[in-house]
């Protein structure tokens, strides 16, 4: 009973139905714990004062924005190679979540940077690369909406996602080169490695876990609705012939 067996949409519906409530519960717990702990029970940073509390939403959102696109890339590859509908629809369901995560990362990043940089938008390379990632998400979703035939839509968006990933990485370095970072990042670097004093670190882990589970829940629900819509259209199409 290989993993691919769950690529069958109907089986996937049953499995995801059982798993969904638990993941939702887990995500809720982690989010609440992470945010409450981070918001109320951590001291202010000696230099940045209370704005450090923003890391509990900015870092997880930024992480999810990047990993959402990576997940869509993997799902697109699976669709192109093994032609499993669930992975194509999962990629489609993940896109809006990734888009909102990027938006959150952008806004919280700008708010966080304001006191340090003195302006709302300071073309910091990291924030700019999220702005570009945001455009990639917009393009990806726009292509999904523009094509009627579901199968060729899945193929085309998968190819766009793969090509887009290459250019996203290129843009990431081009932006870094373009502006070596107006201001050095705060004591915390926005990328994955977190050099943070540990009393900030544990709540951060929780809120990251919370965001990851939230992402999973939303993608599972999204994929299920995509499958149902596809199933309905197939039934209708088959009936009226």
């Amino acid at each position: 009973m290989s993993l691919w067996e769950y690529a069958n949409p109907v089986k996937f519906l049953n499995l995801s139905g059982r798993v969904l409530p638990w993941v939702a519960l887990l995500s809720a717990i982690c989010l609440v714990v992470g945010l409450i702990w981070g918001f109320f029970f951590t001291p202010d940073d000696y230099r940045m004062g209370s704005t450090v509390k923003i890391i509990y939403i900015h870092v997880p959102a930024a992480l999810m924005a990047i990993n959402a696109w990576f997940m869509m890339l993997v799902a697109s590859l699976i669709w192109l190679i093994r032609r499993h509908h669930v992975s194509a629809l999962a990629a489609k369901a993940a896109a809006p979540v990734g888009l909102v995560m990027t938006l959150i990362a952008l806004i919280t990043g700008a708010i966080w940077g304001q006191p340090m940089w003195g302006t709302w938008w300071a073309w910091d390379p990291r924030l700019t690369s999220f702005l570009i990632l945001f455009q990639f998400y917009i393009g990806y979703l726009a292509l999904w909406k523009a094509i009627e035939n579901p199968d060729s839509a899945a193929d085309l968006t998968s190819i766009l996602c793969i090509v887009g990933s290459v250019f996203a990485v290129l843009s990431r370095y081009a932006v870094n080169f373009w502006n070596q970072g107006l201001h050095q990042g705060a004591s915390l670097s926005l990328d994955k490695e977190k050099n943070v004093a540990n009393e900030f670190y544990h709540p951060l882990l929780f809120s990251i876990a919370g965001f990851v589970f939230l992402f999973l829940v939303l993608v599972l629900i999204g994929t299920r609705s995509e499958i149902r819509i596809r199933r309905a259209s197939v039934i209708v199409a088959r009936k009226i012939r």
């Binding site: 069958n8 949409p9 199933r231 197939v234």
Partner: peptide, 12 residues
């Protein structure tokens, strides 16, 4: 009749 293997078949 529906033919197995066409894209939509997997959804039924």
């Amino acid at each position: 009749r529906a033919v197995y293997g066409d894209g939509a078949e997997a959804f039924l």
